[in-house]
Design a protein around this nucleic acid. Structure first.
Lengths: 334, 334
DNA sequence: CTGAAAGCGCTTACAG
DNA sequence: CTGAAAGCGCTTACAG
């Protein structure tokens, strides 16, 4: 493969000038720049990533830490990160961490410290003190999606507000017996998302003067299957509620299917609302509070990039936009 | 951050010895190795990826080309690639290509040529002549998942055989009026998967002496939604078929939901079988031919790694294992 | 606006 | 088994 020396020779300039002409850093006369470009093109020259990184300290590579690759929310966020990074000419290096301590030690203690990335995006990953410190010690721009994360710049949705919004929609339709499908404590590892959503639900009830009934709460595991099972438990009884809020769209879809199985008509006999903005929501006619995960990924990408170039201010703690999308799974309490 | 010089000084050896002791390449006495390890640990030394790559030509990084990040099949394969690579201490760099010519040019002409990766895995990506050539010109181990791909080592399932297996299951249950949900030509970009599956279906019919009825074929788009729509078209008529084969599990699930909507009991009045091994198949009780996408990813990872270390033989063209999983969506024709 | 040269932090023949 | 030294292919102050 052609090296910078070949290009320099061909263009009749020094390697320094080639570097400046091609990278856009530093000044080069327009005609020289053109000559270098032509030479580079003719030789099929592409800069060597390592050599450039070693000399400049920049890698054009962002590390993305994700706890799951094959779950809808995470792969959608990742897709958003990827398209934004691609546009900016950055590569993405994937770090799929697991609860396994050894894997995490490897990622935080080793992989990330190899200086292979210019910045890091951590997607809905709960980090302990050590891990946070290791991330900070990298001395690289870091942006987290999901939080709160006291020591990191964080892009997050206000989970309690989201659940409150969903609950208020049901309440505004006249519902008072509202069931809730949340999650067991095992899922609280991710920033207490379940807990916050549950709080939002309860606070909406309280504001409306509705007594909270613990028998109307059932935990699940954020899957369609889990939502189905939980919904069966909540709905298969004579005094069943008239509405149901699930802490994720996937669980809400499970609930929708459970209602069908039980012969309960939605929304006439039961209103169901989810949270997330899942791509299948449209198909199922599911009312939801969309949190735009793809856009979350794009925004996170733009945020690290901004910190990289502008030396943008730290202390991002933006609340991401959400939107109530009313479809046909919710209706007035009759 | 500590450099190799710091470690060398601390351990009282040369940088050459540090490099050898830590990398495991070359000979070092056990006691020296231990001393170096201790020094490295004490200083928190981690090798610089660029410097190491530049000097050695190895990057410990594999590029993965995927057309979609947020579709079940692809994210599942990716997850398999990732876990295998992680175990081997390799990073993954993600190249999410799109049909957009500019993006593809960028990836094949630029990103991959920056010498940032030691090998490439292309997941179910149809490549044109130019792209294939560019991949080959990289002079790196390349493994493709899905094919056929005449000029690349390929891991693939025999798509026609898979569809035949599914069709034969239905036929063995006594079905003769079998509908087929396939895909329009737009989806043939990925190695003609739809076409091959369709052929397999037809050949099974032919072997069983069943006349192929074009009115029993409906195209869709590999989504639940598309499968639902196609199934409605096929099933909402008096002379409807007694069985249905969908070219993907997601479309089969859509068909399952369509049957429910139409009040058709599965499997009593209609048998439905899919292809893929989707994680929701269990929940839906969907009979399918599993192609184990997670394992496909792992095998692809192992294959590139093998080519990297063993200088393993080229010319892999393995047929990946598949398995008929009979669940409750199929039953005898009554 | 351009070039000579140092330097980025490793790895690896080569010599001993 | 170990070290001195060249070299990997760039970038970037510095000088002109």
């Amino acid at each position: 493969m052609a090296s910078i020396d070949d290009v320099a020779r061909q263009a009749g300039v020094s390697t320094a000038t080639v570097s400046r002409a091609l990278s856009g850093r530093g000044v080069v006369s327009p005609t020289t720049r053109e000559r270098v470009r032509e030479a580079a093109h003719a030789l099929g020259y592409v800069v060597s990533a390592h050599a450039s990184s070693l000399a400049s300290g920049r890698t054009r590579n962002i590390g993305v830490i994700v706890p799951y690759l094959d779950r809808w929310f995470f792969s959608t966020v990742l897709s958003g990160v990827s398209s934004a990074m691609m546009r900016a000419g950055y590569d993405i290096t994937l770090y799929n961490i697991t609860p396994d301590r050894e894997v995490r030690r490897q990622v935080f203690g080793d992989f990330l410290r190899r200086q292979a990335v210019d910045g890091v995006i951590a997607v809905s990953t709960k980090l302990d003190e050590d891990e946070t410190q290791q991330l900070l010690d990298l001395d690289l721009p870091v942006v987290a999606i999901g939080g709160p994360h006291p020591r990191l710049d964080t892009l997050m949705v206000d989970e309690a507000a989201v659940a409150r919004l969903a609950a208020e929609h049901l309440i505004s339709l006249g519902h008072r017996d509202i069931a809730y499908i949340g999650a067991g404590p095992a899922f609280d590892t991710d920033f207490l998302v379940p807990t916050h959503r549950r709080r939002g639900f309860e606070s909406a009830l309280a504001s409306a003067g509705i007594a909270f009934d613990p028998r109307l709460v059932e935990p699940a595991d954020f899957t369609i299957e889990g939502g189905h099972r939980a919904a069966l438990a909540l709905l298969d009884r004579p005094d069943r509620p008239t509405a149901l809020l699930a802490a994720s769209d996937e669980m809400a879809m499970g609930a929708l299917l459970a209602a069908r199985d039980l012969g309960i008509r939605v929304p006439e006999q039961l209103s169901i609302i989810g949270i997330d903005g899942h791509e299948l929501g449209e198909f199922f006619g599911l009312t939801t509070v969309d949190q735009f995960p793809h856009a979350q990924g794009e925004r996170a990408a733009e945020a690290v990039l901004a910190k990289l170039t502008d030396a943008a201010p730290d202390g991002i703690r933006s609340s991401l936009p959400v939107e109530l999308k009313v479809r046909k799974s919710t209706g007035p309490q009759i």
